[in-house]
Computed example of a mutant assay.
Amino acid sequence: MGYLTTHVLDTANGCPGAGIDLTLRRLAPGDAAVLVERTTNADGRCDTPLLEGAEFTAGRYELIFRVGAYFAQRREALDDPAFLDEIVIRFGIAHEDEHYHVPLLVSPYGYSTYRGS
């Protein structure tokens, strides 16, 4: 059975994005059910997969990363309000037997993501 993981890297400081709150939601027509709320560890990862087992099903999902609070805590909120507050990444899971990894590379003014391994 497949599973879902994430990893946040702070590209402005060259370090893991530790302490970033995130939410995973399953998207369905007219609904967005919250499945998981976590905080990244010292390595910028979550301690366990975000989804696995019977919960890991094909469909549309979104990850919401609260990076504005992270950069404010680091005293790097260069603007008020912060340019990036929440980053929403919408993605699909098509194959229930594969590992899906959604990394986030972030700085106060930009971000990038891709399907990792």
Rank of each mutant, 00 (worst) to 15 (best):
M1W: 02
Y3C: 11
L4I: 08
L4N: 04
T6E: 04
H7E: 12
V8L: 14
D10K: 09
D10T: 09
T11A: 13
N13I: 01
C15G: 07
G17N: 05
A18G: 09
A18W: 02
G19T: 04
D21Q: 11
L22Y: 01
T23E: 10
R25W: 00
G30Q: 06
G30I: 02
D31T: 09
A32W: 00
A32V: 02
A33W: 01
A33Y: 01
V34D: 03
E37R: 15
E37D: 13
R38A: 14
T39N: 09
T39Q: 11
T39V: 15
T40E: 01
T40M: 04
N41D: 15
N41Q: 07
A42G: 08
D43S: 13
R45V: 03
R45A: 09
C46Y: 00
C46Q: 03
D47Y: 07
P49C: 08
L50V: 15
L50I: 08
L51A: 06
L51I: 12
L51H: 02
E52R: 13
G53I: 00
G53Y: 04
A54E: 14
A54R: 07
A54W: 04
E55H: 11
T57I: 13
G59Q: 03
R60F: 08
Y61P: 09
Y61T: 04
E62V: 09
E62R: 14
L63C: 05
L63M: 07
I64K: 08
I64T: 11
F65S: 00
V67E: 00
V67N: 04
G68A: 08
A69W: 01
Y70F: 14
F71W: 01
F71A: 06
A72Q: 12
A72V: 02
Q73W: 06
Q73G: 12
R74P: 03
R74M: 11
R75T: 02
E76V: 04
E76C: 12
A77M: 09
A77Y: 01
A77I: 03
A77G: 13
A77W: 01
D79V: 05
D80C: 10
D80H: 10
D80V: 08
P81M: 04
A82W: 00
F83W: 12
L84Y: 00
D85W: 02
E86N: 14
E86C: 13
I87S: 12
V88S: 09
R90M: 06
F91E: 03
F91L: 06
I93P: 09
I93S: 07
A94V: 14
A94K: 07
A94R: 11
A94F: 13
H95I: 05
E96Y: 02
E96A: 13
E96G: 12
D97K: 07
D97R: 11
Y100M: 07
Y100C: 10
H101W: 05
V102E: 00
V102P: 04
P103G: 08
P103A: 07
L104S: 02
L104F: 02
L105K: 10
V106A: 00
S107Y: 01
S107A: 14
P108H: 02
P108F: 00
Y109N: 14
G110R: 05
Y111H: 14
Y111A: 15
S112T: 14
S112C: 08
S112K: 10
S112M: 10
G116H: 06
S117M: 08
S117H: 10
